[in-house]
Amino acid sequence: MAKNFTRSDRIAQQLQRDLAELIRAELDHPKAALVTLTDVEVTRDNSHAKVFYTFLGSEEDAQSIAAKLEAAKGYLRSELARGIKLFKMPELHFHYDHSVEQGMHLDGLISQAAALPRAPDDDA
């Protein structure tokens, strides 16, 4: 069975790979290696790309990274244009992805619920 990937999906995957490498290698921040790109969504006309990322560090470092990404998005876009031949390189919009933190919170709640004493009639 053939997989139906749209051109936008393939572009998003390539942007995610290339952006991750660029951020790690080129971003002028001591903790840039701690940035993880979780997803990239490209509009159908390739004019905009939402880049979702997470950061493992303190809250003030996360704010510093967010400011650095915003300041460097023009540079990152121009570097991407050198490697990917597109009629129009999408404008980058960075969004912090809270899903990892929410997942860790839910995991903690599940662990707490599992540690609670069981009712006497709950044998299963």
Rank of each mutant, 00 (worst) to 15 (best):
S78Y: 13
E79I: 08
L76Q: 02
M89F: 14
D9G: 10
F87K: 15
E60N: 06
L109H: 07
D61A: 01
A72S: 12
F55T: 02
H48I: 13
S78K: 14
R82A: 12
A115H: 03
F52H: 10
S78Q: 13
H105E: 09
V42P: 03
D9F: 03
S8W: 01
E101I: 10
K31T: 11
D122N: 05
F94Q: 01
A33F: 07
A12P: 07
K3S: 13
G103H: 08
S8Y: 00
D121G: 07
T43E: 03
Y53H: 09
L15G: 00
A32V: 05
M1Q: 12
L37Y: 04
D61H: 02
L86G: 08
A113H: 08
Y53L: 08
S99Q: 13
Q16E: 00
A33P: 15
T54C: 07
P30A: 08
D123W: 06
D9L: 03
S47V: 14
K68S: 12
K31H: 07
V35K: 00
K88M: 13
P30M: 07
G74D: 04
D18Q: 07
R77A: 09
I84F: 12
L56K: 11
N46D: 02
S64R: 04
R77L: 08
Q16I: 00
L56Y: 15
E70R: 15
L19Q: 00
L116F: 10
L92P: 04
Y75M: 12
D18H: 09
L22I: 02
S78F: 14
K73D: 00
E79A: 13
I23H: 01
K50E: 11
A114V: 09
Q13W: 06
M104S: 10
S99M: 11
S58T: 13
S58A: 06
G74I: 13
Q102Y: 04
A115Q: 10
Q16A: 02
V35L: 03
T38E: 03
L76G: 02
H95I: 15
G83H: 14
I84Y: 09
N4F: 10
N46A: 07
E70A: 14
V40Q: 01
D97L: 04
L69W: 07
L15I: 08
E26C: 02
P117A: 05
E91G: 14
R10L: 12
T43K: 03
S111E: 12
L92Y: 07
V42A: 01
L19I: 01
L76S: 03
A71Q: 15
R7T: 06
K85I: 15
A66S: 14
D122V: 14
T38S: 08
G83N: 10
E91A: 15
H29W: 02
R24F: 01
A2M: 05
Q63Y: 09
L109T: 04
F94D: 00
S47M: 13
D97Q: 05
P117Y: 03
D9C: 07
A67N: 15
P120Q: 10
L34D: 09
H93M: 15
A119Q: 10
I110N: 06
V42R: 00
R17G: 00
H93E: 12
A62M: 12
V100W: 05
L27F: 04
K88H: 12
E41H: 02
D9Y: 03
E26N: 01
A72N: 02
I11N: 00
K3Q: 09
L34E: 06
M104Y: 05
I65H: 01
P117H: 05
